[in-house]
Each structure stands twice: as structure tokens, then as C-alpha cells.
Nucleic acid binder design. Structure first.
Lengths: 199, 199
DNA sequence: CCGCTCCTATACTGATCTGTGAAGTACAGT
DNA sequence: ACTGTACTTCACAGATCAGTATAGGAGCGG
């Protein structure tokens, strides 16, 4: 669950900055961005508030670093899984749902980026762009994989799969739907195979 | 978009309380719950802070009233649309997607209840139960309509439709996917008809 | 006229919020 | 020895937070 489990620590960060980012990631995710103050983050990091501001400039800067780290970690997880996957193109297009299956197991607070989007309503906030970029990236990835699989309308199908994907996270965290990942994966497979057989 | 557009004002509320609730609903939705202070709400309502606390007890009380009003408004919208719908059972099961289509038009900040869920991490917060109850209600409604339509596995299909539904809201607000409602409606219809033909 | 509800007005508490200023310590590389 | 980086200490702004205290006014049914 920590940042270095998958992507490893960011070597461009100083040791103190890395601790700050790790602590802030946990607190932002589990308690919400606005509910956590910089004093708390600094204290739990074993670091003074001065250091936090020297490294990240502002709380907003730390928020952006948090979102970018989450985004990076998650993208590398999917792409690495795609590199290892040599099955047929339909199974490749379902890889994000396989990742989702493992992703949902420990965490039950939903998608950190979607949650942040709900907490950052100001249109100019740089954190919003990270969230938007991540979802657009996943949509484009679906589109690409579906085109390779020979889907009839990759654009439309990509939106449908993206909706299934994001909705599954919501259902898991709110309704506590235990095996929602397998359920939506089956729905996605149905939609894909049907789209292929019709083209 | 205001509370009285669909469900009408709550007659159990005093005039001042109704104004407070209306203003708080707009501010909570568009700026986020934590980002709006009670001073702002009172000032914009043309009411003293004392009145706010006399009517709602605390900010948490006002939050719960806000969520319950949203929940009530939305449920009555769907049920009234269901009462007017006399078409075949498949079209009836798709009614929530028809409502979603109109719902998504003006608002682009996502689902108020899901957003509130992201902002209220404390498990005991009464507002969370409102959100959970609303999503469980929709899942149960899907289950019921799908059973009447003769779906093969109403439980599983209900979760799939709920995921599509919630995911569509996320896609609309984050990726600005314009006609996501029609797109996921088509996917839902595909899943339903396929489930019926297989049973 | 009494009592009740609804609401205003204003001042205030104590906590918490983000962010800064100024000075100093430890240590690495060159 | 010199320099830059990383970090500490700690006081202190200035604002905003939720929530309360005290006092009183306006309308209205009995």
C-alpha cells in the first residue's frame, strides 16, 4: 500500500520530502485532503513545518505531488501488467479490471483521484488536471486495446468500460459490494465480445 | 436545480430554515462541504448564525439535512418517472438511465452524495448512512425491475447496472464525456437483453 | 395581555488553519 | 576552508473555523 511497493520511492525527493509525501498520501487518502492540516503532516513525518514548505512550497504543492504519485504508481502497475500479458486481445483489454480486482482488496475509500476531484472544486486547481489526465489516459488505453481487439466502435465501448471501471470503485467503497470487480469484469467481457462479433 | 423544482419545499421547515437549506445545498454541492463555513451559509441566507444553530443544531445536522433532501428529491424523481412509464419491463429497468440523462445536463460536479462520501471519512458520521442507503436503494430497485423483466441473474446484473450508472456520473464530471448517459444506457440495454435471452 | 415561535443583533471563545521570519545546526562534496 | 543542501527551532502572524452567550424584537393565537 505504500508508494514504494510498486513504483519505488521518487529519487528526486530528499529523504525528508519522501517521508512527508508518504505520510501525506496516507492521511489525504484516509481522512480527506481538507480534513488534514499541514501541522499534522509535519508532526507525523517527524519533520518541521518549515521543511514541508521548503520542499513543496505550499499545501497545494503537496496535494499535487500526492496525486501525481498515485497516478504514476497506478499507471505503471497497469502497463507492467500489460507487458506481461500475452493472451488474446480481449483479455488484454480486460487487464485494467484484473488490476482493479487486486486494487480494491485492501482499500475501501474509493479512488484517491476521484475523491480529490470532489474536494477540489476550483477549476484552476492544478490537482484537478492530474485527475482529468488520469481518467483520459485510461479511456485512451481502453480505446487502443479495443481497436486492437477489433471492436466495432472502440470510442463508445471505451466510455462504457471506463464507466464500468469507475462505477465499480464507487460501488465497492459505498455499497461494500464484495466481488464487484469480478462482476463488472464479466459485464465488460460481454460487451467486448458482443462488439467484436457484430463487426 | 433548486430543491423545490421537483420535490417542493419541505413544509416542516420554517421559512428561515428552508432558505438556509437551499443556500447550504448549493454551496455544499459546488464548493464542497468542508470548504464552506457556517458563517458564509448564514450570511448568504440572510439569516443570523444563531438561527442556523437553532434550526439544525450543528453543521453536521445541516449536512445530514442537505443529503436527505438530495436523496428524497432524487428518489421521488425516479419513482414518479416509473409510475408514468408503462412500456415493456426492459424499458422500465432503464428508467434510472433516462433520469440520469436529464440529471447530468446542468450539473457537472458529480453526484452530491458520492462527493459527500469522499469528504466524510468518519464511519460513524450520520451523513454516510444516507449515502449508503441511497445507493443500496438504487441497487434494490434495479434488482426488482430486472426480476420483473425476467433477467437471468438479477442480483449480479443489478450490480453491473449500478456500476454503469455511478461510473457514468464520474465520467461526465471528470472526463466531460458529453453523451455518456446515452452510451451507458445502450450498454445497460445490451446487458439486460442478453441476460433475458439466456434465461 | 400572555406565551410561544421565529428571528435579529452583536460580541465572544478557543481552537485550528495556512504560511512566514529569522537564526542556527549538521554534513556532504570540492 | 568554502559552499550548498537539508533540516531544526520556535515564535508569530492573520484569517477562519464551529459554536455559544446575552439580550431583545415582531407577529400571532389563546
Amino acid at each position: 500500500m505504500t508508494a514504494d511497493t510498486v513504483a519505488g520511492p521518487d529519487k528526486r525527493l530528499t529523504p525528508g520530502a519522501q517521508r512527508i509525501l508518504d505520510v501525506a498520501s496516507e492521511l489525504f487518502y484516509w481522512r480527506g485532503i481538507h480534513a488534514v492540516g499541514v501541522d499534522t503532516i509535519a508532526a507525523e513525518s517527524g519533520v518541521t513545518k518549515r521543511t514541508l514548505y521548503d520542499r513543496f512550497g505550499s499545501k497545494d504543492g503537496l496535494i499535487v505531488a500526492y496525486l501525481e504519485a498515485r497516478d504514476r504508481r497506478w499507471r505503471t502497475l497497469i502497463t507492467s501488467r500489460l507487458d506481461a500479458e500475452h493472451a488474446d486481445p480481449v483479455q488484454r483489454a480486460l487487464v485494467p479490471f484484473d488490476v482493479l480486482f487486486e486494487w480494491l482488496a485492501p482499500s475501501s475509500r474509493g479512488c484517491s483521484l476521484v475523491n480529490a476531484f470532489a474536494e477540489l472544486p476550483e477549476p484552476e486547481h492544478p490537482g484537478r488536471q492530474v485527475v482529468v489526465a488520469e481518467k483520459k489516459w485510461l479511456r485512451a488505453l481502453f480505446r487502443e486495446l479495443l481497436a486492437e481487439a477489433g471492436a466495432e466502435d472502440p470510442d463508445e465501448l471505451a466510455v462504457q468500460l471506463l464507466s464500468l471501471h469507475e462505477g465499480a470503485i464507487v460501488c465497492y467503497s459505498i455499497v461494500a459490494e464484495a466481488n464487484v470487480a469480478a462482476t463488472v469484469r464479466a459485464a465488460a467481457e460481454t460487451l467486448i465480445t458482443r462488439s467484436i462479433s457484430h463487426s
